[in-house]
Design a protein around this nucleic acid. Structure first.
Lengths: 338, 338
DNA sequence: CCATATTAGGAAAACGTTTTCCTAAACAAA
DNA sequence: TTTGTTTAGGAAAACGTTTTCCTAATATGG
C-alpha cells in the first residue's frame, strides 16, 4: 500500500499523548482516561488510521494468516472446500493465503517454505499421496497443521479430516450388490491418490469379497478424475468379452465420461448398465439420466479443518486426530436394480 | 510459525560476522569476501534458516502479497480466474490472499480495509456492480489495483480486464438471427450485475434492433446464474402465448436449467427451440445435446489481470485502461438453423 | 495523617530485517 | 612518501507496532 502515511506516531503526536497510550486505546485496555480515549478515537476516525498488521505481526509473532495448500482450485470439490475454510477463518479473524501445487512435489515444498518465511499461524494441507519429503518439513517446523483427505504417514500428532473412503466405497459397492449386480467394475483414482484411489478400491474389494463375488482385475482402472479419463476407462472396461452390469466411478467426472462412452457405443444407462458416481457435483441432477452418486460435503470438510486448525493455533489440545465427515449415497436415475 | 527459532542474529553470531554481512550475503551484495560468504551460507544450510518475511516486509514496505476479492470461489469461472492469477503471481514471487464477498457490500469493504491493514502490494477486485462506497476507498488509498469484469465508475486511472460483453452478446444474438431465428429470448444476469446483466442485454437489443426484429420485454429475464434460476426463467419465458424459437442464456448454468425445463415440458432442444449458453463450462460437451456457448477464457483473464497488477506494482506506466480478452462462439448441438 | 496499594500514562525495549553511515584497510595515483 | 579512492564490513538507525518497566498521582486502610 503505497500511500498509507498515517502511523500510530502521528496519532500520538496530534492527540498529544504517547504512542503507548494510543496503542492502549486501540487495544482497549481499561487504564486510559475517557478524555484521552475520546481524543485518540476522534483522530483515528478523522485520519482513517488503521494499524499496520505487518508491524503488529512482527511484535506479536502472529500473522492471523493461514496457508491453504491444495492440488488445484479449479476443481469444484476444492473450491467448495476453500469456501468452507474461508468462512470459518474469516469469522475468527484469519485470512487465507491460497496456494495450488498441481500435485507437484517441488511446488508443494516451495510453498511450505514460503509459509514458514511468512510466519503463517497455521497450515491446511490437502495431501493425496505420502511423500517422504513432507515429513522432513513437519519434523522441523512445529506449525499448527491440519491435513485434508488423509493423514500424513507416521504423523500422528496432526489431525486430519476426511470422509471414511473405505467405508463409503464399501457401502456404495454393497448397494450395487444388493440391487443384484454381480459383475461390478470400479473406476478408481490414480495410483498416486491414496484416498480416492487405494482406499476406495479397498472398500470395493471388501464388499465383493464379503459377498463372495469374483474380483476381476480387468474391471479395475486407476485414472485421473477427468471426463476424458472416465471415457477411456469405460472403453477399457467394456472391451472384455464379459461386461459388467454396473460401474462404480470414484468421481462424477469419470462417471460422466463413462456414460458418454456407453451412450456412444449403444449401451443404455441404466437399462444396460448402471453407473454410480462419487462427489455428487451440482450438475449431477441436470444430466439425463440424473446421476446416482456418493455425496460429499466439501464445505463441511473445509469448515471442520478450519475449526481444528484454529483450535490448534489457540493451543487447545487436539481432541481427535481422525475427523470423519459424513457422506451420503444419493440414488437417482443412473443406477437400477437388475 | 511457533518454533522457527533461528534468526539472522544467530547466523551472524555463529559465523562470527555482523548481522549486516549476513544480510548482504543473503541478498547477494558483491561486497563480501568469498570466505565469509561461504561461512554464512554453510550455516544457513545447516540451520535451515529462512529470512522472516514479516520483518523484511516492515522495513522494505512491501509484502509480496496481492489481495484477490471475488464474489465467490465455488463458481468455476472465478476459480479458473484465480488459477490464472496465481500462476502469474507465483512466477513473480507474489502470493495471494483470497477473499470472497458473496457480493455483500459490507464484506467487500471489510476486506478492502484488511488489505490496507495488511499493507498488500496490490489488489485484484472483481466488481459486478457500481457501488458508491468503493470510490471512497480507492480515493484515499493509492494502491495498485486491477478491476475485473468492468471498470469502476469514474475510476479511469485503474486498469480493468474483461471481455467485451456488449459485443459478445451482440454477436451471439446476431448468430441466432442469421440462423433465421426471429423470436429470440434472453436470460440475462441479475439487475445488479452490470456486465453479465446490463451489458449483455444491451448487445442483444442492439442486434435485434439492427435486424429490425421486435423486442419483447416478456422474453427478457434478469436472474442469477444458477440452474434453478435458469429453470424458472425458462418457465416464465415459455408461459406466453407466443413462444420464442431460441433462448440466449447469459450463463451455461441458466442454459442447463432452461434445457431441463424445456425437456420436462415436452420441448425438444434444439428441434423445437435452440438454446445458446455463455461461458462454455467444462461440462458443456458432456450434456446431450452438447451445449452451444460463448466461450470465455477465465484463465487468460486472470493472468492478464495479474500481469497488469504486477506492472503497476513495479511502477511501470499503465498502458491501457481497458483490457479486453477474447471470447469465442462455440456452436455444438443445442442450437440449430430454422 | 501516614503508609501502602492502585491507577494512569510516558519512555524505551523488543520483534527481525534492510540500509545508511562510518571506519579501516587496501590500493592507485601523484 | 602522501593523498585520494575503492572495497569490506561493523554499528546503529529505521520500519510500526506491543509490552515492559517506570514514575507520579491518586485512592485506600489503619
Amino acid at each position: 500500500m503505497t500511500l498509507i502515511k498515517v502511523s500510530i506516531k502521528e496519532i500520538a503526536k496530534k492527540s498529544g499523548v504517547s504512542v503507548s497510550t494510543v496503542s492502549r486505546v486501540l487495544n482497549n485496555s481499561k487504564f486510559v482516561r475517557d478524555e484521552l480515549k475520546e481524543r485518540v478515537l476522534a483522530l483515528v476516525e478523522e485520519t482513517g488510521y488503521r494499524p499496520n498488521m505487518v508491524a503488529k505481526g512482527l511484535v506479536e509473532k502472529k500473522t492471523q494468516l493461514i496457508g491453504v495448500l491444495i492440488p488445484r482450485i479449479s476443481n469444484n470439490f476444492f473450491s467448495k472446500l476453500i469456501e468452507g475454510i474461508e468462512e470459518i477463518s474469516q469469522q475468527h479473524g484469519y485470512n487465507i493465503l491460497l496456494s495450488t501445487s498441481y500435485n507437484d512435489t517441488n511446488r508443494e515444498l516451495e510453498y511450505l517454505n514460503i509459509f514458514k518465511e511468512r510466519q503463517l499461524d497455521g497450515i491446511i494441507f490437502s495431501v493425496t499421496e505420502f511423500k517422504e519429503e513432507y515429513n522432513n518439513f513437519f519434523k522441523n517446523a512445529k506449525v499448527p497443521t491440519v491435513f485434508l483427505g488423509q493423514k500424513l504417514e507416521q504423523q500422528t500428532k496432526y489431525p486430519y479430516v476426511t470422509i471414511d473412503n473405505i467405508q463409503a466405497s464399501y457401502e456404495a459397492t454393497k448397494y450395487l450388490i444388493e440391487r443384484r449386480h454381480k459383475n461390478i467394475a470400479i473406476m478408481a483414482g490414480p495410483e498416486s491418490d491414496m484416498a480416492t484411489g487405494d482406499h476406495r478400491l479397498q472398500g470395493y474389494i471388501k464388499a465383493l469379497t464379503e459377498a463372495e463375488l469374483p474380483i476381476n482385475p480387468n474391471w479395475q482402472t486407476r485414472r485421473y478424475h477427468t471426463i476424458e479419463d472416465g471415457y477411456s476407462a469405460a472403453a477399457q472396461i467394456m472391451m472384455g468379452s464379459v461386461t459388467p452390469t454396473a460401474i462404480f466411478a470414484c468421481s462424477d467426472q469419470q462417471a460422466l465420461g463413462a456414460i458418454n462412452y456407453l451412450n456412444e457405443n449403444g449401451y443404455k444407462v441404466p437399462d444396460d448398465i448402471s453407473v454410480l458416481g462419487f462427489d455428487d457435483i451440482d450438475l449431477a441432477t441436470v444430466f439425463r439420466p440424473k446421476l446416482s452418486s456418493v455425496k460429499q460435503y466439501p464445505l463441511e470438510i473445509g469448515a471442520t479443518a478450519a475449526r481444528l486448525l484454529i483450535n490448534q493455533i489457540k493451543e487447545k489440545p487436539v481432541e481427535k486426530v481422525e475427523n470423519l465427515v459424513p457422506y451420503k449415497l444419493v440414488i437417482r436415475e443412473s443406477t437400477k436394480t437388475l
